[in-house]
């Protein structure tokens, strides 16, 4: 380790020379230096996934912006975390996400720890909720009779944080991704109720959901 500490690794972040450690992603570097790059599919406990594309940053010498969460920092790169182009992409992406969610961005905070993420980002990035009108993607399973987890997938934005936390943090592999594209749904084996699956009702999926599509039924009952 001494060797890597001796060689100072630096890159330019928004005009400022900053240091990083080997293997750090651009997102992690930027976060350490106080940048608030928007994300929806990111959870620091999980392997970077690169799906929401909100964390795109400009890297000098590449034609398109890159996803900072999956891009490992390289020596001497010149990175910009804000630009007109990035702002436009982020706004469009958030407006598209809001459209699949039926604009249902105001969420009861009791639903879960991360449930306000989408709503706050839409506000922060000046995204509208009335563009890109069209079909709704998720289909709620309100009839899943388990007493713990509300599966309100009408609010789902297919970030798969629930699926990934179930696999990577809990090792339960109770839920997965069925179908593809806009038809994607979060399902258990054979699309049964959670009680008939490998789910242990640990609640990790609820707490990582950025839209309140998964909610803590107990908390909502006690409110």
């Amino acid at each position: 380790m001494n060797e890597t500490e001796q060689i100072e690794l630096t890159l330019t972040l928004d005009g400022e020379l900053v240091t990083f450690t080997l293997g750090e992603t651009l997102y992690e570097v930027a976060q350490r230096y106080g940048r608030e790059i928007p994300t929806l599919c990111y959870d620091p406990r999980l392997e970077a996934f690169g799906a929401c594309r909100l964390c795109m940053v400009d890297v000098q010498g590449t034609r398109n912006p890159v996803a900072s969460c999956t891009t490992v920092a390289q020596l001497d790169t010149v990175v910009h975390t804000e630009s007109e182009r990035l702002a436009r992409h982020r706004r469009t992406l958030l407006e598209m996400v809001a459209s699949e969610n039926g604009g249902a961005v105001s969420v009861d905070p009791l639903r879960g720890y991360a449930s306000q993420e989408l709503g706050l980002l839409i506000e922060r990035c000046d995204a509208r909720t009335d563009r890109f009108a069209g079909a709704h993607s998720g289909t709620s399973k309100l009839d899943d009779a388990n007493p713990f987890i509300l599966r309100d997938y009408d609010r789902c934005i297919s970030c798969y944080r629930c699926v990934r936390v179930c696999a990577e943090q809990e090792g339960d592999y109770a839920i997965s991704i069925a179908n593809r594209g806009f038809q994607t749904q979060i399902v258990t084996e054979f699309d049964h109720d959670l009680r008939d699956s490998a789910c242990t009702f640990c609640g990790q999926c609820v707490q990582t959901c950025p839209t309140g599509a998964l909610a803590d039924r107990k908390a909502l009952r006690n409110a």
């Binding site: 929806l40 690169g50 799906a51 929401c52 594309r53 909100l54 992406l93 598209m96 996400v97 459209s99 699949e100 890109f132 009108a133 069209g134 079909a135 993607s137 934005i157 297919s158 798969y160 991704i177 179908n179 593809r180 594209g181 806009f182 038809q183 994607t184």
Partner: peptide, 28 residues
């Protein structure tokens, strides 16, 4: 392309769907 979009990244998953709708009488 909407039919074949894998559903992982947001721009493709939602964008192919919205473009399809807009070429079929949908949109503003």
């Amino acid at each position: 392309f909407a039919h074949e979009s894998c559903g992982k990244c947001f721009p493709c998953r939602i964008g192919t769907q919205r473009l399809t709708e807009r070429l079929n009488g949908g949109g503003p």
